[in-house]
Design a binder for these strands. Structure first.
Lengths: 159, 159
DNA sequence: GAGGATTCAATTGCGAACAATTAAATGTGA
DNA sequence: TCACATTTAATTGTTCGCAATTGAATCCTC
């Protein structure tokens, strides 16, 4: 095996790796966009964008929470959430009030319309399930794998 | 089983579904962001953002291509690509020239610096692999599943 | 060849996403 | 108590991502 062969093999390995990481990260990236596009017409009827829908999902599970709490649940920071929450407030779906106990904290609570929207939103999941053309079991298994990957990535970030 | 029981069960099923679809789509969404954050410090050294890195990866595989071609490979449209490509041109990594055969078409070609950046980029994949804390085989298997899901979603969009 | 449809990139406007900074409130240690 | 650090949202500036529109070039049909 001469030096030329070694060089060629090294290039090939690097190229493969470059392609591999491209495909995995790009797969997640492009699938997120594909989901977004499938959600769009469904969420248009609710008057929500996908990130706004995520915030509403979080609030339907537990509201009257600080912005920081929402950020930790959704992996988003105040730079993203503050303007988004102001738009939800303008749409009269949430109310933002400063905590009396700690004036640094802004508490996000659902309005009656915000609570009511939950009923409309119940039509969304089955449409997504249909579009994915997967069984619930398959999706759950994939979800667990993806979440495990995400958590490992976030663990590295936390170091 | 009285009517009250039926109602309660229906609500529970809808809630489960809402929660399920949330987790799957959100898993992909939040993992894409986690990847982005892991890539950021690595790509900063190359002077690229993650979407710019994707464009460069595509061009390293095949350049001298129309904007439309890049868009199809990356699932992005001209509204996203045009300003991004202008920034890459300002960074002298690509050159944009109007095709002489068809003046509607803008061809994207790598500059010598654009080609050269590929060598630096070879250091990126191994860092991502390490951060993911997965084997190559695991990542490849996940990638295939995710791509299959993406393609099914995109198929629904194409109808 | 002329008229109309189609294709392609660019543009505009809006909503994320995030880094970095700011400002105010709170907590802590000497 | 007072200085200093920390916490929490908000703000600013840059970059995506996409819908909708525009304008130019090309294609197609008659």
């Amino acid at each position: 095996m001469d030096s030329m062969t070694v060089m060629v093999r090294k290039q090939t390995a690097a190229d493969q790796a470059l392609r591999l990481d491209n495909q995995i990260c790009f797969a997640v990236y492009s699938t997120a966009h594909a989901f977004n596009r499938v959600y769009k017409p469904l969420l248009d009827r609710l008057g929500l964008t996908y990130p706004q829908y995520l915030v509403m999902l979080a609030l339907w599970e537990r509201d009257d929470v600080p912005v920081k709490d929402l950020g930790e649940r959704l992996f988003l920071d105040s730079g993203t959430l503050t303007p988004l929450l102001k738009r939800l407030e303008a749409a009269e779906l949430v109310k933002r009030t400063r905590s009396t106990e700690d004036e640094r904290v802004v508490l996000i609570a659902l309005t009656p319309q915000g609570h009511a929207l939950r009923e409309k939103a119940k039509a969304v999941p089955q449409s997504i399930l249909a579009a994915s053309d997967c069984t619930v079991g398959e999706l759950l298994a994939m979800k667990d794998e993806i979440v495990a990957l995400r958590d490992r990535l976030n663990a590295v970030l936390g170091e």
